[in-house]
Amino acid sequence: MNSKVIVPKDLLPSGRQKRQQFYERIIGFFLGFISLAAVAVLFGIASALVPPTIDFFQEVPFSEFFGSTNWYPLFEPPAFGVWPLVTGTLVIMAIAIVVAVPGGLAVSFYMNQYASDQVRRILKPVLEILAGVPTVVFGFFAINFVSPKIIRNIWPFGDVDFYNALSAGLVVGIMILPMMSTLAEDAMNSVPRSLVDGAYALGATRREVCTSVVFPAALSGIIAGVVISVSRAIGETTIVLLAAGASANFTFNPGEAMQTMASFIGFAGIGDQPTDSTGYRTIFAVGAFLFIITFTLNILSVRFVRRFREIYE
């Protein structure tokens, strides 16, 4: 027998409540759909890069791309050896990191252990301003001031070209410094207070607290910061394009003009390449190379951040 449960009428959802429930579900689906936008953009980037890159490698053999040191993809006759871009990227990245990592670490040590609250309240916004300066402004500063007025006067090892890797690298380093110091400071701030207080109680000086307690305890966060800095330095375009010139020289001499992978993409993008040319596809091939490198570095840094969160939070 079907026994019917009788529910009092005022406990059943009213028409209005049913409409509300339906409405809520629609909103949930809508928001969920929109939140896939970030995923779609990332997949869009990947799918923009892959097909032209495959086409590129059907025209240019792997052995030439990775085996030659001549890079004239937009000239006749073209040459597609990527090594000059790789060395250019490495040299400028190395100079930038030599500035940004020790500089950023020093600033974060100062903020973390030395500065009074008052000093910190002044330094923090100034660092934020430095972090917000557009890259094109840094690029102009590099060619208008750093290169002609400083580097070309004081560099002791040989002549310095008007466009040079040195000023580009230095200015990229200054650009990254605030980000490095913010990331390092975040890591240092999550070091338990008890560790630092314990060291002071044992008679350690501020330097010893910095180097023997705060630094090792915050190490994985600091490494994450270094990795992100490397990734930012590799991906920087405008400063390098303005200050390091447009010739892909296969050299390690920082006084010469150089081209990085990123600045090549910008340079090739200025001259409107015909869509169906090897030159056009070169942009995508180098872009894919750049994307893979920065993608790997970012995943690495996420790993490191997770590790230091696991330890202290």
Binding site: A38, V41, L42, I45, I228, S231, R232, I234, G235, E236, T237, A262, I265, G266, G287, L290, F291, T294, F295, L297, N298, S301
Partner: peptide, 8 residues
Amino acid sequence: LAGVPSIV
């Protein structure tokens, strides 16, 4: 996505 270079 936050770490993708802007040129990309």
